[in-house]
């Protein structure tokens, strides 16, 4: 059974079909990239997979449960227990230090554990910056804190929305390298991106256009390493 399955998903706003009969399966441990131009339905799809929105029609089976039928409270619980989110704008709590931001995810999930949070920061190479506030960190460092926060509760899926959108090449490479390591460890990754270099690193890529999956390609030369054109 697939870890995630979208069956005939529609998201309709008035006359606009943000998602129009989307079908998608994601296997456990898979690294999937979702691409598409602005307005293609990427964010809508991410919100639905991330339990922050519900489809107008269709089924979203996550780990055997149809989350389309769940209420807001259950969706919060599912999101907390099964999904790790990474955003383009980093979105850290600006008055909490790096380690406190990681522990925040633990706080809502179970019990905050400073040692474990420090290990997660060590994993993203930020152990020495644990006591720094987001304003004292570079963009790349902030995004790595977000990665540490996303993986701290060992989620079923890490869902990243344009994770490298605000990063320079060097930091983009660091973040993709982190994804590769997470993938090696068996984590399921869904990365929404408009950056072909980031999408091509994934095992599989789907392209959305006007709310429909227009193309799906499997990376036969998958290594998990980014290849820059220049």
């Amino acid at each position: 059974m697939s870890l995630l399955e979208l069956k005939h998903i529609y998201k309709i706003y008035g006359d606009l079909h943000a998602l129009d009969n989307v079908n998608l399966k994601v296997e456990k441990g898979e690294w999937l990239a979702i691409m598409g131009p602005s307005g293609s339905g990427k964010s809508t799809m991410m919100n639905i997979i991330g339990c922050m929105d519900k489809p107008s029609k269709g089924e979203v089976i996550l780990d055997g449960v149809d989350i389309a039928k769940e209420n807001a409270k259950s969706l919060t619980t599912i999101r907390r227990d099964k999904i790790g989110l990474i955003f383009q704008q980093f979105h850290l709590v600006n008055y909490l230090t790096a380690i406190e931001n990681v522990m925040l995810a633990q706080y809502y999930h179970s019990i905050p554990d400073e040692k474990e949070a420090l290990e997660a920061l060590d994993r993203v190479g930020l152990k020495d910056r644990a006591r720094h506030l987001p304003s004292q960190l570079s963009g790349g460092e902030q995004q790595r804190v977000c990665v540490a926060r996303a993986l701290i509760n060992h989620p079923e899926i890490i869902l990243a929305d344009e994770p490298t959108g605000n990063l320079d090449d060097k930091n983009e490479e660091i973040v993709v390298e982190l994804f590769r390591k997470l993938h090696e460890d068996g984590t399921t990754l869904i990365v929404v991106t408009h950056d072909p270099e980031v999408a091509e690193v994934a095992q599989r890529m789907v392209v959305l256009r006007s709310g429909k999956i227009s193309r799906e390609t499997v990376n036969e030369h998958f290594t998990g390493h980014i290849r820059f054109d220049n």
């Binding site: 409270k73 919060t76 619980t77 999101r79 989110l85 709590v93 600006n94 999930h109």
Partner: peptide, 16 residues
């Protein structure tokens, strides 16, 4: 609002 949204996104309940 963004911070609240973030907290909710990473699993905060309304009660939290």
């Amino acid at each position: 609002r963004k911070e609240i949204g973030l907290r909710k996104a990473i699993g905060a309940s309304d009660l939290s």
